[in-house]
């Protein structure tokens, strides 16, 4: 469902971004074209995030927050004087429907994340898997007998000349 919402988000966003005048006119939001275009950019960004992310949950909650913004903005068009009250009302109903989908998807991902976290808490403990016969502190430098081949050494010009050639 997350990728479906992602494509929907990009589609809606492109319409708002490319035709803000038309969208504003239809929804009774004349004078708010820039706001509508900004909402379009937000929708596109959220959609791209949803499609590319391995963990879509933060983007889904981002969509829910965006839905709240959309509803708040549409509510301003419900004014009795507005000649587009009916369209604004229908748009709010549509947004409410999409919000329900966003919430369901976000909750479902959150629940799966909690399940994964619980599974992770049950994972075996690797805190003793050092691969070393003694504590790391004791083993520090145990292989200092290894002679780094000349072609793997830091180039002579970059070695600590100042340390090796103390200048008074």
């Amino acid at each position: 469902m997350a990728s479906g919402l992602g494509w929907f988000s990009i589609g809606l966003g492109l319409v708002e971004l490319l035709a803000p005048q038309a969208v504003s006119r239809v929804l009774g939001l004349r004078g708010q074209e820039r706001l509508v275009a900004a909402y379009g950019a937000r929708e596109v960004a959220t959609g791209v995030g949803l499609l590319l992310s391995r963990d879509p949950e933060p983007w889904l909650w981002g969509r829910v927050a965006g839905d709240a913004l959309d509803l708040g903005t549409l509510a301003t068009a419900l004014d009795r004087q507005s000649d587009r009250r009916e369209e604004a009302g229908l748009a709010m109903l549509a947004v409410l429907g999409v919000t329900a989908l966003d919430l369901a998807s976000a909750w479902s991902h959150a629940s799966r994340r909690r399940g994964r976290a619980a599974a992770r808490r049950r994972l075996p403990d690797y805190a003793r898997r050092s691969g070393l016969p003694a504590s790391p502190e004791k083993m520090r430098g145990a292989a200092r007998d290894f002679v780094v081949p000349e072609d793997f050494r830091t180039p002579a010009a970059l070695r600590a000349w100042g340390v090796a050639n103390e200048v008074a």
Partner: peptide
């Protein structure tokens, strides 16, 4: 990844 970090700590 928590278990990878735990193994890294085990190695010093």
């Amino acid at each position: 990844v928590p278990e990878r970090l735990a193994m890294a700590q085990a190695g010093g």
